[in-house]
């Protein structure tokens, strides 16, 4: 029988080890797996590489991981959101490495990892600082940059509803990076607002359960 449910948040993050590369879904304040992040904070795994669109804000979520010194590298498109105090402090002190990736390239590199691709050619960033040192091609007069896939050890994603098979559906703009990240990690952990014993309507499933390894209910909305 397939049953990916785990009893609680701390059991869900127990496999996350020091030095792991961890994808974290969310954009701004929506679709962030806040319960899983705070369980990871309690677990205290160190030397993490965090792959996410933003670098957190305030004293919660990714910002709290940075505050506690658990993060050694951030891969993101937009670290400079209002309230990203802990990222800025760690960055200014040289305590965290930053890789800035254009948002669409970030999403597609993650998707490529999940889809078994060796990379892709994108016109994004061609001729800019972010393409320096990268292989380029000109096809039909348009310049492209070769971008590699971006996999991870773990993905933490947040959905609206899930079932024991690991299927997840999302609410509104909380979908964002969650579906592509779910595909791209060796071990994907989904936090859902409601976890049901009955299967989700297959029409409504956005992340098929095959991509999810553990699923846990966390009713609080961030």
């Amino acid at each position: 029988m397939i049953d990916k449910r785990v009893p609680d948040l701390s059991a869900a993050v127990a496999p996350i080890h020091d030095g792991a590369a961890v994808m974290i879904g969310g954009f701004g304040s929506s679709g962030i797996p806040m319960g899983l992040i705070h369980a990871l904070l309690d677990r205290g795994a160190r030397g993490l590489t965090v792959i996410s669109n933003n670098a957190g804000a305030g004293e919660v979520g990714i910002s709290a991981l940075l505050r506690e010194g658990l993060v050694s590298k951030v891969v993101c498109s937009y670290p400079r959101t209002p309230g990203s105090i802990w990222f800025e402090r760690r960055y200014e002190a040289g305590e965290v490495e930053l890789e800035v990736v254009p948002q669409g390239t970030l999403a597609e590199r993650i998707r490529a990892a999940g889809a078994g691709l060796g990379g892709f050619l994108t016109p994004t960033a061609y001729g800019t600082l972010l393409a320096e040192g990268k292989e380029t091609r000109v096809i039909d007069g348009i310049g492209y940059v070769l971008e590699p896939p971006l996999p991870a050890d773990f993905a933490l994603v947040r959905g609206e509803a899930g079932d024991r098979w690991g299927n997840v559906r999302y609410h509104a703009t909380a979908r964002n990076f969650n579906p592509v990240m779910a595909m791209a990690a060796r071990h994907t952990i989904a936090e859902v607002r409601t976890l049901s014993d009955t299967p989700l309507d297959p029409h409504s499933v956005v992340t098929p359960g095959i991509f999810v390894h553990a699923i846990v209910e966390h009713g609080e909305r961030p």
């Binding site: 669409g104 979908r175 964002n176």
Partner: peptide, 28 residues
Amino acid sequence: EDPELIDASKKLVTTLPGAAFFDQAESF
């Protein structure tokens, strides 16, 4: 207000008739 319905500025928004949601790979 729906805290999970925001725009790129992270402001709360609504949807118009005919709207659609999608993930980041599709959005880009």
